[in-house]
Design a protein around this nucleic acid. Structure first.
Length: 428
RNA sequence: GUGAGUGUAGCUCAAUCGGUUAGAGCGCCGGACUGUGGCUCCGGAGGUUGUGGGUUCGAUUCCCAUCACUCACCCCA
């Protein structure tokens, strides 16, 4: 009986993984430019970590975490997100004592037990970044610029960054009360979900998509108008700094986020081509989180991007996934050719070339066909003639020409490349 | 978690009202060319019709269950 993968857990096959590699390489480059350093975090954490950071009543913690008891009774969980782990590591290693500002990036799988859909998997991969030790508007703007640069470098054309301020622990309670009061006064016009939200998580009233609630929303209080002066000035400055650098942010006064730790600047990246799962990333400021997990009172801000969703957007844009081709395809003919091919292949690889060595038993025709399919620019033929003379024949696939005896069998890679380009030039 | 749709070859899809040997294109392998790819032509392999049950003389087709995927809700990356 065949064994299949688990629901919501997918293989990323070579055709797709090349795109992933490109996305990740691009991210590393951009993170370097902003002077972020990678942190590699464990996939398993204590369940408590997420209950205390993400929030006891959030959907993620309430119904989406994979949790299990270890043999010694510890309740472990497959991490549903990366920020909590990064904060835990920051606190655990007392990183604030090493440097005033810590800038971390991370890559890796996250796990949430949701109903799978296109762009929504139970194991999905994130690219994330976090900054600890700064709470000024400039670092928020730096993060937003980094995010924007990253999206652009990856090639996401339709990305739009929506921003809002969520206020802080001083001004949010008052806003919350205003919102509840407003909600109560319109209770009978709200959808059933929102009537429930009114009790449990009133901020969520704002991003309901039900038509009746959307229509009602224009009269709802906005955080941007209810937050205290410090939060308001902070947010205005963040937007100004971004605008000065040519980054357009879309103010979304009703945006809220699904994780409890966010405050002040919050943002979401949406892109087209994903259907209803159109968020490719999101993040925000979380000034109380480090302290609440036992660390110093330092501010933090970060974001995460979903790799699967980025790949889907690129696919929807029609871009081809990269398909790396070997530089040399070595086609042996017969037993003598095979052992020469094996040795030559090993040497060229040691010298840095990408090389595919076929086995000797196959017809030249089928080897040529395979080389053509792989888009190898050169096929090295090794049969009786070549082994006997000690000179190799190279088929220049693009020129459709054979270079007989173009190099010695014991050539090195530089000689070989030079001989091939000389042969091509001589031909005109 | 809720509601709905779809499951046929590796992939994309056919198959009349329930009818006897389930087809095509692409891909794969081989040949036309005994040492030469892409184009063309020819041939071949590949299927428990998602799985399990039921109805029927007979099920890819109808019914039930189950699993997976997809869409919307929800949520978020």
């Amino acid at each position: 009986m065949k064994i299949s993968s688990v629901k919501g857990f997918h293989d990323v096959l070579p055709a797709e993984s090349a795109r992933w590699a490109e996305i990740e390489a691009t991210a590393r480059d951009i993170f370097d430019r902003y002077n972020f350093s990678e942190i590699r975090l464990p996939i398993v954490e204590r369940a408590e970590l997420f209950r205390r950071s993400v929030g006891e009543t959030t959907d993620i913690v309430e119904k989406e975490m994979y949790a299990f008891e270890d043999r010694d009774g510890t309740v472990l969980t497959l991490r549903p997100e990366g920020t909590a782990s990064a904060v835990r590591a920051y606190v655990e290693h007392a990183m604030q004592t090493q440097e005033p500002v810590t800038k971390l990036s991370y890559f890796g799988p996250m796990f949430r037990r949701e109903r799978p859909q296109r762009g929504r998997l139970r194991q999905f991969s994130q690219i994330g970044a976090e900054v600890f030790g700064r709470d000024d508007p400039a670092i928020d703007a730096e993060i937003l610029l980094l995010l924007s640069d990253l999206l652009q470098a990856i090639g996401i054309e339709s990305a739009e960054i929506g921003v809002n301020t969520l206020g802080c622990s001083d001004c949010r309670p008052a806003f919350r009360e205003a919102l509840v009061a407003w909600g109560e006064s319109h209770r009978d016009q709200l959808c059933a979900d929102c009537q429930r939200r009114l009790q449990q998580n009133p901020l969520r009233l704002l991003d309901c998509k039900q038509p009746q609630c959307v229509a009602l929303r224009d009269g709802a209080p906005r955080m941007i108008e209810h937050c205290d002066p410090a939060c308001g000035e902070h947010f205005a400055r963040v937007r100004q700094l971004c605008e000065e650098q040519g980054l357009e942010l879309v103010l979304q006064p009703y945006m809220v986020r699904g994780l409890d730790y966010y405050c002040r600047t919050a943002f979401e990246v949406v892109a087209s081509g994903l259907g209803s799962q159109n968020a490719v990333g999101g993040g925000g400021r979380y000034d109380g989180l480090v302290k609440s997990l036992g660390g110093p009172q330092v501010g933090g801000i970060g974001f995460a991007l979903g790799v699967e969703r980025l790949a889907l957007v690129l696919e929807a844009q029609g871009g081809d996934a990269p398909r790396p081709a070997p530089e040399f395809y070595i086609a042996p003919l017969g037993a003598a050719g095979e052992s020469a091919a094996f040795a030559l292949g090993h040497r060229l690889r040691a010298e840095g070339a990408r090389v595919e060595v076929d086995s000797g038993g196959k017809s030249l025709k089928s080897q040529m066909r395979r080389a053509g399919k792989m888009e190898a620019p050169y096929v090295i033929l090794l049969g009786e003639d070549e082994v006997g003379s000690g000179r190799i024949t190279v088929r220049d696939m693009q020129a459709r020409a054979d270079r007989r005896g173009v190099a010695a069998l014991d050539t090195d890679i530089n000689e070989l490349r030079a001989a091939l380009s000389a042969a091509a030039t001589a031909e005109g």
